[in-house]
Amino acid sequence: MKTETWTQAVRHRLDLGRLLPLGGPYDGTWITERAAARVLELAAAEVPGVRLESLRIGSAPLEPVSEPTVRPPAGALPPGPLRIEAACTVPLGKPLPETTDQLRSALLNAAAERLGLATVTADLRVTDLQDVPETGVKSRTTARAMRPAPETATARSSPAMTGTGSMRGPVRELADVVTGVPGVARLTSALGSRPVKVEDHDDPPGRRIEVQLAVARGHHPLEVARAVRTAVTDAATTDKSGPVTAAVLITETAA
């Protein structure tokens, strides 16, 4: 039983993909690769005739990274430029450079404007050409490298916590603060730990807070995370707590 539970936890963690830095080193925010990919897939679907076959996001090679001002979630990438890698099928009858440029712009713009990712490049690989009608075309995204199919992604989505009744004391109070921030859809526990984790330490004195959450439709993930960090640090700061730092991990988006 323990082996099976451990295996399921590993599979779930792999399904989340990398933990990507959102914003800069002072923002203290990360987003799962799967959540970011969802937004990029929707942007790619706006390019007529294009079908994504795979999509990955990771650190851009040879680009400098920064030390975050707060302790990141375990295994998270350091703040720095990112690279998008995508494989796609494109339509016949349209110049290939024009189509790939359009897709590249859609991905980079969505990463920067809809999410707040510091992306510097999008490397595209065309795997096939397809004959599609000139009108009424809707591209479909499968992103097989990230998830086998939309149904599988739903089944494997991170455990949701729509309430805070199971929490007690200061943790529950902070959880209530988080869920009261506009744009927070719910708390989550994608990494297998509590959605709101508080650690007090004495050397040096201070308090560390880590929050996992889902962002509601129509809200910008980075702006929501910034508001959450401000709210929880204000709520957790006392005369005896010492410096308070907060890290936010966005595990789901409803773009």
Rank of each mutant, 00 (worst) to 15 (best):
R194I: 00
P68H: 03
G136R: 03
V65R: 10
C88P: 08
T164V: 15
L117W: 09
L92F: 13
V196R: 07
P133L: 01
R144H: 05
P68R: 08
T162P: 11
R156E: 11
P95G: 12
T152S: 07
R168Y: 11
T179W: 09
A111Y: 02
S157A: 14
E134T: 02
P81T: 11
S105C: 12
E134V: 00
A153C: 08
R172G: 10
T142M: 10
V178S: 04
P204G: 07
S66D: 08
K138R: 07
L115G: 03
L82D: 01
A122M: 06
S158V: 15
T135K: 05
A185W: 07
N109W: 04
A118Y: 11
R156W: 02
T99M: 06
G136T: 06
P182L: 04
V177I: 11
E113H: 12
V198S: 03
P170W: 10
S193Y: 00
P150S: 04
G169R: 06
E199R: 15
R156Y: 05
T89R: 14
L92Q: 12
T142W: 10
A185Y: 12
T188W: 02
A118F: 05
T89V: 15
P133F: 01
V178G: 08
V196D: 02
T152C: 01
D101A: 14
R125M: 13
V181M: 07
G116K: 00
P79W: 02
V70F: 07
V184G: 03
G169N: 11
V137I: 02
S166H: 14
S105G: 12
V70A: 10
S189M: 08
P159N: 07
V126D: 10
G163A: 14
L77G: 01
K138A: 14
R104E: 14
V132M: 11
G183A: 09
H201T: 13
R114N: 08
G183L: 06
E67S: 13
T162N: 06
T127V: 14
A143Y: 04
S139Y: 00
V198I: 13
T100Y: 09
Q130L: 10
D101F: 06
R147C: 01
R147W: 03
R125P: 00
P73S: 05
Q102E: 14
L191K: 07
N109R: 14
R156T: 05
D202Q: 13
R125K: 10
C88Q: 10
G80E: 04
P205G: 05
P170I: 08
A185S: 09
A74K: 10
R147A: 13
Q102Y: 04
R168H: 15
R140I: 15
P195I: 00
T164N: 01
L103P: 01
E98F: 14
A143H: 05
P204H: 11
G136Y: 00
P133E: 03
R83A: 15
G165N: 13
P204N: 10
R83G: 03
A185L: 09
E67Y: 11
P159F: 07
A153K: 04
R83M: 14
S158D: 06
L129Y: 14
E85Q: 14
L92K: 13
E173A: 15
L108Q: 04
T162E: 12
E113Y: 08
M167F: 15
E67V: 15
S189G: 15
T135F: 13
G93H: 01
H201P: 11
T99H: 09
V65E: 07
A87R: 15
E98Y: 12
R104C: 13
R156P: 00
A190S: 11
